[in-house]
Structures are given as C-alpha cells and as structure tokens.
Design a protein around this nucleic acid. Structure first.
Lengths: 251, 251
DNA sequence: ACAATAGTGTCTTTCAGACAATATTTT
DNA sequence: AAAATATTGTCTGAAAGACACTATTGT
C-alpha cells in the first residue's frame, strides 16, 4: 500500500488522563461528570482533543492544568509538579459512537490535596477511590454510590493506569510522586501500602529505602504530623531506578 | 472546551512496527527502504495507515503479515506466531512534513529465520543490527554501511522498542518469543546475552530458568545442533511472570 | 585426546521477611 | 502511664554470583 497521505481515513485524536493520588490510605482517581451525550451524566476520565499544532504530551499537560490546576513535571524536571507519562493508546473503531476517535492515555501521579476542579471546563469533578470505580467492592455492599461504570472504555484505561502505577513503583522511585516535596519514611510506606493494598513491615521497609543509595536524601528536619516519635524528613534522591527492586509481596 | 466532534482537527493515524529478532548473537530489527519522498531511499520501520474500520492492533497485525509474512499471536494466544504488543504513540506536530500524523508503534518479537520481504509492498526489506542502526558502533568503524539515520522519528521509536524488550525479558518469559517452539537452555541464554549485550554464567542461568516452576517445560527430546553434549529441548511453560526476576547484571 | 557444550553441586554474600527491643513523641 | 509511631538490631531462609567438577557429544 503506497503511502498516500491524501487518501487517509479521518481520525480525531484525544488525550485522556488517569490522574492518581493517595488519600485516606487508598488510591484515588480524578473523574469528571459528562455534561452531554453520549454517556451524559456518567463519570469519565478528564481529557480532550489534541490541537492541530501541539504535541501529545503538551496536550496532556494542558488538559491537566485546565481540569485540575496542576502543573506537570513532564519527564526529567525535578520538583514542582506531578509526574506525567504516556500510558497507552486506545482506538477500537466503535469506542466513541459518534466517530472514529483514537485516544492517547496519559498517567499522572500527584500528591494529595489539589482540590479538584481548580479551574476549567469540568463542571463537576471529584476524586473517587479506584476500588469503587472499578467495582472491586468487597461484597459488603456499603459502597453504594458509583456502581455505574465509567463512560466509553475508560474502565479499561483506568485499570491499565492503576496496574502501571502498581508495577512501576516496584523498580523505580515513582512512589515519591505521590508524596509532598518533603516526606517521612512512614508516609512513603503508606503510599506503597495504599497503591498495592497490602501491609508492609515498617522496620524492613525503613531499612530497605534508607539503605538504597541515592533514593532518599535527608533534609535535616523532622516532623511529628503523624503522631508518635518525630520522624526524619526526606526528599526524593536522584536515583530513579530501584535496584534491587522492592517486590510486591505474595501476588 | 466542549466536546465537539464536528470541529476536531484532522489527523492521520498510522502504525509503525519494531520487529526484533535474534541472529548471529545480536539483536536485529526489520527495516524497509522508502520508495518515495519524504526520506526517499532511507531506511524506515515498516508500517502504514490504520483503516477506517479496524482496531489498532488489527492494523499492526495486518501490516506485519503484509510486510513479513509473519502471523502475530496477539496477547494470550499460545503457539504459532510472533509476540505483538503496543509500544508507544508518537505525535509531534512536524514528525511527518506532509501532514499531521500520529503513529502508534507496536513491538514484535520473532524467532530467527523468517526471510524478510515475504510478501507485500515493501520492495526492499532487510534485517539490520540494532547496534548499527542506532549508531552504537564501537568506534572501530568497520560497520561502514548504514550510518544514515532512520527516516522520521523512527530512531527514537526503535530505541524505545529495544529498551522495552531489554527490560521486559527481565521479569517475564518474553525471551522465549525469540526462540523457535522448541529450544534448549543454551539457546535461551544466548537470547538474553544478545538482547542485553552481556555474558551470563551458563551454570547459574541453567539453575535459574529450570528452577522457576512453570517457566520451561521439557519436551523429552534432545538436540545437538549447538555441538557438544546433547541438550534437553524445552517449550515455554504457562508462567508468563518471572518471580523473582532475572536482573540485568551491572548496569 | 581434545574441544565444545550441557548439567550438577558447593560456597559465599546479599537481601527479604519475621520479630525483639529501644527511642521519642502525644494523650 | 499508655498508646502511637520511628528506628536499630538480630536471626533465618532464599537466591545470586563465583566457580570446581562431571557428562556427552563431535573432530
């Protein structure tokens, strides 16, 4: 098939965002309520069209700022801003009933607290527990709200994003993206526990993370915001690769 | 920005393939020579437009068959066919000088031997060492041919594909995708050595892979195709996850 | 006999996981 | 004092890396 750009089928290209944060010892995702059909009134991942002159990652960063007020720290940039990386691309022919839409999904990891709907067009946005969104209820049925699945194929996208986050904190320092600039070992451990949904031994965890050169840098300060004995404060060190990795217990 | 499908900017969507194989104890990629501008005469990754009614992975599998005669074993399917998985998506505004093209790259891992250009429109295709293609020459300068970089941003796509293959064989059984249906432990080890570009201890490697339950299944047969003492033949077992992983030595 | 590859066993070191014990705060 | 969290240390078992040794072929 000769490469004939004049005869290509027309596509719309969008970016969708899986924005994850840790709060209340659980993993939460940002969702927005759809104001128009299709899937009107349903929750969906934030996102929007890629403009004609912008790169994909630019579009993702723009949508992120528009819908949450967060700035991204695309790739290498150190401080200030959430981690942003490409997740995967979804392009089933009928995933949008109106037309052919290919969506490039991005994963954003952010510390807690950015109040949802800081600005932009998302008339109603909220953080929702990923367990609830994905129907991973424990069967007790108390989590009544939000059993309606997400719009489009956003269930699958969210699932892929959560799995990416879960596996990537094993061998990288990415878990620190869920923490404020300065944090304690205990806070970092609670991130791992929330993302993996397991309990980790505080003592072994402490030994592991403080014993990995370049992973954590002590700032000198201490805090007692968790109660109990004051804990040292750390910043994320330069090391982005965790070797040997911290493996999830007992899958 | 209201979700207005009637006003979307027009994009072309293509798939590009990073087809990797191991031969002569090195990692090779499939490249095709471009017959028309832009980048006429340059080598490029195989690929083409996504049709209006096909899924992205379908398009990748179709291009793969058209350009190599290989069948893919998308995802779970066991035997018969190369491994195919989505790699990443590239959409910089000027990556194709003619128009806005977003390309979804797929990674294909295949055993050796499929003679290139089994069929289709690629008038000239060949296997090229990834080291040569990516300019990782050792400085001795004997690899004269092919210092011209690949067309478009295919250098970056190839680099990403190679890195994905390198990291994924650490914690999965994916290295078996480079092997024929039946293979020896030594052949599997040479795959790891070629992909990582390191030497592994044959004895420790043997202990590791045969000691991981479900990773290798003995077929009963033996072969002597490598010379020396006959080696047991194995098939890939059901286990797709390698735990604990086989870590690359000494990055 | 010799070279080449396959496979087993042994030793040392590293590290994960279990858990005792101590330290420093709030209530 | 009691409860909560942080931190250090000790022990055990699993596994990686180094490497001696045996096994079975081709030349």
């Amino acid at each position: 098939m000769p490469y004939d750009p004049s005869a290509f089928p027309p596509f719309a290209v969008t970016v969708d965002l899986v924005v994850l944060t840790v709060r209340k010892d659980a993993l939460y995702a940002l969702v927005v309520r759809r104001g128009e059909p299709p899937y009107q009134g349903r929750w969906a991942l934030p996102g929007g069209f890629v403009r004609g002159d912008e790169d994909l990652e630019e579009a993702a960063a723009r949508e992120l700022t528009e819908e949450t007020g967060l700035r991204s720290q695309a790739l290498e940039d150190q401080d200030a801003g959430a981690h942003l990386e490409q997740l995967a691309t979804y392009g089933a022919p009928q995933r949008d009933p109106r037309m052919r839409v290919v969506s490039v999904a991005y994963l954003v990891l952010a510390p807690d607290l950015p109040a949802p709907t800081a600005g932009g067009d998302a008339r109603s946005a909220r953080w929702a527990s990923t367990d609830t969104l994905l129907g991973a209820g424990d069967g007790s049925g108390w989590e009544v709200e939000q059993q309606v699945p997400l719009a489009f194929d956003h269930d699958q996208i969210l699932r892929d994003g959560v799995e990416r986050a879960r596996s990537k904190i094993e061998y990288s320092s990415l878990a620190t993206a869920f923490c404020p600039p300065e944090f304690t070992v205990g806070e970092l451990r609670r991130v791992y526990e929330a993302v993996w949904g397991v309990a980790l031994d505080p003592r072994n965890f402490h030994r592991k993370v403080t014993g990995t050169p370049g992973f954590l840098v002590p700032t000198g300060g201490t805090t007692t915001r968790q109660g109990g004995r004051p804990a040292q404060l750390f910043r994320a060190g330069g090391a982005t690769l965790l070797n040997p990795p911290m493996l999830r217990p007992e899958v």
